[in-house]
Each structure stands twice: as structure tokens, then as C-alpha cells.
Design a protein around this nucleic acid. Structure first.
Lengths: 349, 349
DNA sequence: CCCGCAAAATAAACCGATTTACTTTTTTTG
DNA sequence: CAAAAAAAGTAAATCGGTTTATTTTGCGGG
């Protein structure tokens, strides 16, 4: 039914109609000025008459690199990566590139496959948000293939690529300090058991801050595999025997689990236990209580990562840089001082 | 720093090393059997030795169509489209295609741009989830360009392309019946004011069902522009003067607004007002109360849309079909009978 | 008017694959 | 064993562009 029966005009058709050579037509289309104005005009007219559109993929053949930027994220169903990708798509287009988006579905073997595909596509550069079980595998692939790239989120310093990530240490320290000041002396850190450097950084920064400013504080850590049942189960087991005055959830899915486990056990939040989550989401304003969260500057991460990549594409040399962006701490109702009133009353505004 | 200094082997390099012609090498790589086993083996060896990888984009040049499927969705930050895209990515790869993902960012002009880009890329087929202000603009572009494609979500029957969507009529009727049976006689339908056929279908199906089974029911409709402030503002105005016993939110963002407006006004849900939302989200299990929702079969939508597209790509003729998939009704705490106890106690399990 | 130089234009090669049209080799058959 | 048929192999054309090397044109000066 629908198919390419109507043949598309090629640059040769355009050249013929304009009465010039294909090389000249190509020059006009690429904005090269060594063409007589009259001829340039004839070419532009022919383009219009024929409804000519370039094949951007064939165009990169000779150049051996295409006007495409790749991005590989671990999970497109995740709001965070959705926003990141969405922003970078716009930035790429503003810079004259198309964005090729791929998800590694949190799998290292898929991550490799997708990176190889980007390489096969001769992209100009690739942004990688590594999978959770980050052991640098993705970066290694990119290095092997001599790709131009940048790393974002879930990464620490890398010796080959520029990296852009959130300042987990300061954000976690800030949470620790907030809890200390609110009188909390027994806190649970709750998250995913993966080897993610991000989560490890959050934990140790919290512990360091606690050690430094409140040595008597007791900090429990519970980590689980990534499944809704797993998360809630291990939390449930923990709460059977312990009763901290605050929970610091190290990732967004965890926050959801904490909240529903509180409800299942009829634990009043924040009266019985306060809650702070790493990573904000829209729904956190609408829950009861609204959830206090560390807000990651997603747009900024996107912009910085893209800017660094663009510099490298344009040939900038020099040692890889490691950018840390600051998080914002959003106070909401789920946090209160021990034996006191809630710190915040309304979720937003 | 990182760049393509190490030249990649081409199929001619492979052919030379294997001592055969490029045509033969090409045959081997495409799995065509008219090659002597010994030669095929030599080619495979050469591929291995040289670490040869095909350029999949150049490969489609002669064929005039590439092993790529395009998808254009209105919003990648949206969980629904994230899941849709994610699923289709897997399906496409299983079928031997790469998926090119683009977001129209809810803009009709961008939608056209992205569709044109897919066409320029010579994709084998394109799946389109139209922007909200659907007046068929996207489908018209695809028709103009004689593209092979399928439409999903936010569409009614189309005379050119196969469409896959949710059965809004039955789902809304189901909600209406549920509310009627629970004794509700004054209901607010709350949603976005756009001209989305989806939302219009949901409204009229609800009204029809109410007319048929409970003529005395009073159904209010409040529609707003799409902004968090707009949503909450118009809801707030409405609640100033009216007090329905139930709200049916016609879209996910609306549900969030309803919930937080309830909280701001200290309206007890479901004791004062029940709430049902169209479109489920993970967080709806964790709110208080957990939110009763119409669950869309995202994976199924993805599978059907992809299956239809694949048939058309493979040359199936015939009138466009219009598939309606059924939603599931998820009971949760936010719904109760008028003057009675909640219908459901726990969110999940 | 002719020379020299710069500007503009172009034919042809090239990028990396596929496909066509043709040739060569092998197998089957009478 | 020769002729016909089938199988295998390949040179060359092709897809749609860009780039290179070369040629043509335009222009000022002697």
C-alpha cells in the first residue's frame, strides 16, 4: 500500500535541472561561498521545484562521520533518563545534529551492543549513562572503539572521557546534617544493593558527615536487589526488629517502597519516622505526607554533558574533565524534628 | 583525542583477504546460500581477522530502504511513552531492525519535522503517537510522503494507516457503571481542554452510560489548558462552588492535581469525594489513599502496533485496520460507595 | 591582444555497501 | 562423452552524496 513509489530527487537531479554540476549543487547546499550568485539561485530554485531533500545518512558516507549524536541510557521508562534524553535531543538539534537514542535496559551486554551500533552508525559522538552495575564496562567499550564520547550520571572520574555527574557527596552530607540538626540519632539508609558508585558515594558521604558531626549517631544500611518485592521485603524484615527515627532512601524506586511499607505497617510519617528521598519526582508533592527530596539538576546535567561532547567533537584536546553539579534540597512534610512539629507544611509554592 | 584514526575494514577489504569478490562476500554476509562452503568459510574467517563490521546505513543505500524503524512520540518524559518506546525497541531488534526514536515535544511543527526526518532516513516504517492537539496532521504528513506506518494511542480510525488504541469507550463506560453502582449521583470529569479525541471519547462514553443507566446523575465537566497551575486553579474554582461525590480524572497529570488539591482543601478522599484516574502509575499505589485507576495495556499496544507495521512493511495489502485494546480496572482505596466503607483496602498484592 | 592569476565549475573518484548482468564452473542427463 | 542445465562467481553499475584534481572562465595589467 504505502511505499516509495514516487522516486525522490537526488542531488544529480537538482544539478541537472539547475544546469550545473552535482559538485556545484553540493556546494550550494552546504553553504560554501565559491559559487556565483546566479548559479546558487538556480540551484535553490531547482531544490524547491523538485522538493529535494538530502539523504543525511548517505551524505556522511564520504566524510566517514555523520551528523548524528548517540545517547545510550540504561532505562527509558525512567523519568530521569526521559528528561535527560529529551533535553539532549533539543540541544543536539540546535547544534545541527540528529540524536540517536538507545536504551541498554540495564544490561551490560546490551550496553555494549548499543555502543557498537552507534560506532557502526559513524556517529560524531556518544553520550553514555552507564548501567547500574557500572564497572566501567561501557567506557571501556567506547575506549576500545576509539569513540568520541562523554559520560553522565552514575559515573566517577574516568581517565578517558569527560564525565558529568551530581555531587553525591555534598548532597548526602547535606542530608546527614539536616537530619542531625533535626535531632535524629538513628537513621536507615535504604537502597539498591548493586555496585553503583553513585549509591556507594551517597552512603559513605552520609557516614562521614555523621562521624564528623555526631559520632553517637547510629546509621543502618539496608541494600537489596532491584525488584519491588525485594525492596519491600527487606525493608519489612528490617522494620520488624528496628525502629529508626528517619529513613534516607538512596534512589527513587526505593522511596516509593518505603512509603507503601509505612502505610502497610501503619507507621505515621513523619511523626514516627521521617523520610528523605534521593531524586525528586512530581508525585512526591501529592503524597501524604509530601516527600522531602534531593533534586537533581537534570537539565544542567544534560547541558554540561552535551557541551563537553561538542567540544571534543570539535577537536578539543586535553585531559578529561570531571564535572560535579550541585543538587537542591527540597523540604517537604515528610521530615520533622524528633519530638517536634514538621519542618514544612506545604509541598510546593 | 578520540577519533577514527584506525580505519575500519570495508567489505572490499574482507573480499580481498578472502580471495573472492565483494559480491560474494556480500552474499555470505547476507546469508545467501549460493556460495561454496569453502568460500563462505574463508569470508567468515576474513571478517573475524579484520574485525569487520558492516555499515548498516551505507548498506541500505542501494536498497533504498534501511533496516530501521522510526517512532515519533509526543513526550519522552512521560512514563507511558517511555514504556511504549522501550517495548518497541526490543520488538524492532528482535525483528532485525534498529529503532530510531524521536520526540515531537507535543508540537505539531516538530512532529512534522521528525516525520520528515524519518522519511529522509529511509526508514522501513514509522510508528506515530500523535501530539495531543491531534487533528490528523501527523497522519497527513505520513500520507503525503507515502510512508509506511502505523498509528498508536490518541487516534481514532484512520483511512490510510492501521491504528492501535485503547478502548476508551468501554473503559469509560466501565468507570461510569462502577460509580453508579457505588451510589454516586454527582460526578466531576476533570481533564485537559485540548481537542484530543481520546479525552472527548472518554467524556462522551461516560455521559452515554450515565444517561442510559442513571438519567438522574449529574455530570460536570471541567477542562483546562495543560499546566500544573492551570489544572489546579480551575479545579479549585470548581470546588469553591460544587461538591460532587466523585471525580473521574481523564489523564494522569490531572490525577496528581486532584490529589494535591484535595489535600490543600483538606478534603478527605474517599470519605468526602472518591477518585478514579485514567492511566495508572506506580506511585498511585503509595499515595494515601492509593488511587483507583484505569490501567492501559501498554505492552500490548506496543506489540500490536509493531505487528501491524511489520505486516505492512512486508507488503500486506488491504484496508487499514483499527485495533481497540481493552483496559483493566484497578480497584484501590480512593473509591468508596456513597455513605459506606471503602471498596478496597490495600493497593496491591 | 595576450599573459597570468584568482575564482568558479566540473569530471571523476570515492565512501561502503547491494544488485545486475554476465561469465565461468560444476553437475546432470540423454 | 557431449550438450544442456544449474550453480557459483564476478566486474561493473548503482544508490546519494562529498571531495579531489583538473579545467574553464573572468579579470586586471602590461
Amino acid at each position: 500500500m504505502a511505499s516509495n513509489n514516487k522516486v525522490r530527487a537526488s542531488i544529480h537531479d537538482v544539478a541537472r535541472r539547475a544546469g550545473v554540476s552535482a559538485a556545484t549543487a553540493s556546494k550550494v547546499l552546504r553553504g560554501i561561498r565559491t559559487v556565483k550568485i546566479a548559479n546558487a539561485e538556480k540551484v535553490r530554485l531547482a531544490v524547491k521545484d523538485l522538493g529535494y531533500r538530502m539523504d543525511p545518512l548517505a551524505s556522511g558516507l564520504r566524510r566517514r562521520t555523520r551528523q548524528i549524536i548517540g545517547i545510550v541510557v540504561p532505562d527509558l521508562e525512567n523519568e530521569f533518563f526521559g528528561r535527560l534524553t529529551s533535553r539532549i535531543e533539543i540541544l543536539a538539534e540546535e547544534a545541527g545534529y540528529s540524536l540517536a537514542i538507545a536504551s541498554s535496559h540495564e544490561s551490560e551486554v546490551r550496553e555494549r551492543k548499543m555502543l557498537e551500533r552507534m560506532h557502526d552508525w559513524r556517529v560524531a559522538g556518544t553520550i553514555l549513562a552507564p548501567v547500574r552495575s557500572e564497572r566501567g564496562a561501557g567506557a571501556t567499550v567506547m575506549k576500545e572503539l576509539a569513540m568520541t564520547g562523554a559520560l553522565v550520571d552514575r559515573v566517577m572520574a574516568n581517565d578517558t572521557f569527560d564525565t558529568v555527574t551530581v555531587d553525591n557527596v555534598r548532597a548526602s552530607a547535606r542530608v546527614a546534617r539536616t537530619l542531625i540538626e533535626a535531632g535524629h540519632r538513628h537513621v536507615l539508609l535504604f537502597g539498591l544493593s548493586d555496585v553503583s558508585k553513585n549509591v556507594r558515594a551517597r552512603i559513605s558521604a552520609f557516614q562521614d558527615e555523621a562521624d564528623a558531626f555526631c559520632p553517637q549517631m547510629s546509621v543502618d544500611v539496608v541494600l537489596t536487589e532491584d525488584s519491588v518485592e525485594g525492596l519491600r521485603g527487606s525493608l519489612s524484615d528490617y522494620l520488624e526488629h528496628h525502629r529508626p527515627t528517619a529513613v534516607f532512601s538512596l534512589a527513587q524506586t526505593g522511596t516509593l517502597s518505603v512509603l507503601s511499607e509505612f502505610r502497610r505497617r501503619s507507621i505515621q510519617c513523619p511523626q514516627d519516622i521521617s523520610l528523605i528521598g534521593f531524586d525528586d519526582a512530581e508525585w512526591m508533592q501529592a503524597t501524604y505526607p509530601s516527600v522531602c527530596a534531593v533534586v537533581q539538576p537534570v537539565a544542567l546535567l544534560a547541558e554540561q554533558a552535551f557541551a563537553r561532547l561538542l567540544l571534543r567533537i570539535n577537536g578539543q584536546e586535553g585531559f578529561p574533565v570531571c564535572l560535579l553539579e550541585q543538587c537542591h534540597f527540597q523540604e517537604r512534610e515528610s521530615l520533622m524534628s524528633v519530638g517536634s512539629v514538621p519542618l514544612a507544611h506545604t509541598g510546593n509554592q
